[in-house]
Amino acid sequence: MSSPYEWVRKQFLQSEDEFKHYLERQVVPQTSDLKKVYQRLYVIFLFYHRPELQKYLKSNYSDAAVSLMFDSYIALRTSQLTASVLTLRASLDQAIKGWCEPLEVPFDSTRFKQNRLELTKKVCTSFKSSSNLLRSKFQSASDDLQNDFTEASQLTHHLGVSNYEASGYLSEALNQSNNLSETVRFVLHALENVLTFIITLCRESFQVWDSSELLKILQITFSSTKSKTFVKLCKQ
C-alpha cells in the first residue's frame, strides 16, 4: 500500500503534466471583442500616464489598478476566466481608492460600496449646472461599476470544486473556455465604466485639450458617435 505522500506526489506529477500540456496550447485567438478589451486598456494606460492628468489620477493605488487590469486581460487570453474576473474585481477596488485619494475623499480600504458612494457624491457636487448630462452619465457609470463589482464578488463567494484531487482542481481551472464570450463582454462593460470615471474626473483638463486630439484618442476604443458625445460633454 502506497503512503499518502506517494499519492500526493503522483497527484502533483499528473497536475504538472496537464499544466505543461496547457502551456503548449495556443492562447485564445484575438477576436474583435478581445481586441476592444486591449484598446480600452491602451486608452486607460494612456490617460493614467499623461502628465497633465496626474493630479486627478496619480495615487498610491493607481499603478496596482492598471497592472491588475492588464493581468485580467492576460487571463482572458489564456482562457482563465475565473482569474480574469477576480483580478478585474481587485483592479476596480484599487481604482476606486486611487480616485478617492487625489480628491481627498475619505475611504475605507475594505469597503468598495462606501468608497464609491463617497466619491460619486464628491464628484457630483462639483458639476456645473450646465453639466446635467455628464452628471447623469457619471452616476449611471457609478451604479454600473457597483453592479460589476458585486457580480464579480458573487463569483468569489460561490467558488467550489467537487473533485478534491490535485489534478481535478487543475483540470477545472484549465477548461473554462465555454463562457469566454460572456466574460469578455463583462470585462468590456466594466472597462467602459472605468473610462467614464476617468473622463469625468479629468474633465477640467479635457476642457482645454484640443478637441481633435481627445476625439482621436477616444475613437481608439469607442464608436465615433460615442466619442463625439464624450468630447462634447467635456467641453460644456
Rank of each mutant, 00 (worst) to 15 (best):
T82S: 12
H21F: 09
R135A: 11
V161Q: 12
G98V: 03
E6G: 08
L23R: 06
N147R: 11
S181A: 12
Q154F: 15
F197H: 12
M69D: 06
D144Q: 05
I217S: 06
S67G: 09
S205V: 12
Y164M: 14
L88S: 05
H189C: 02
H157V: 07
K58P: 10
K113I: 12
N132C: 15
T78N: 10
S153F: 05
N178D: 14
Q26S: 07
A152T: 05
K121N: 09
D210Y: 13
G98N: 03
G168M: 07
E52L: 08
R40D: 01
V28I: 08
S79A: 11
Q176W: 01
Q154M: 15
L13Q: 15
A75Q: 01
F230R: 03
L119N: 06
Q146Y: 04
V123L: 09
T82G: 10
E151G: 10
K10M: 14
S129A: 15
T125Y: 15
F70H: 12
I198Y: 04
Q207C: 07
S153T: 10
Y22Q: 02
L174I: 02
A64R: 12
Q26T: 05
K55F: 11
L92V: 03
I220P: 11
K137S: 04
L233D: 03
C202T: 11
Q207N: 14
R203V: 00
P51L: 03
D33A: 09
V28Q: 05
F230I: 03
V85P: 04
S72Y: 00
K35N: 15
S62Q: 08
L41S: 06
L53M: 09
L41Y: 07
Q11K: 09
L159N: 07
A141W: 00
A166I: 10
E151Q: 14
Q154K: 14
L159H: 05
V208N: 11
E213S: 14
K216A: 15
P29K: 01
T221G: 01
L86K: 12
K128E: 11
T87L: 02
L34H: 02
L215N: 10
Q26C: 02
I198R: 00
C234T: 07
R203H: 00
N193Y: 03
P4D: 11
S181N: 14
L180M: 09
Q94L: 12
S32E: 15
S177T: 02
L180K: 01
C124S: 04
S167N: 14
S2T: 09
L233P: 02
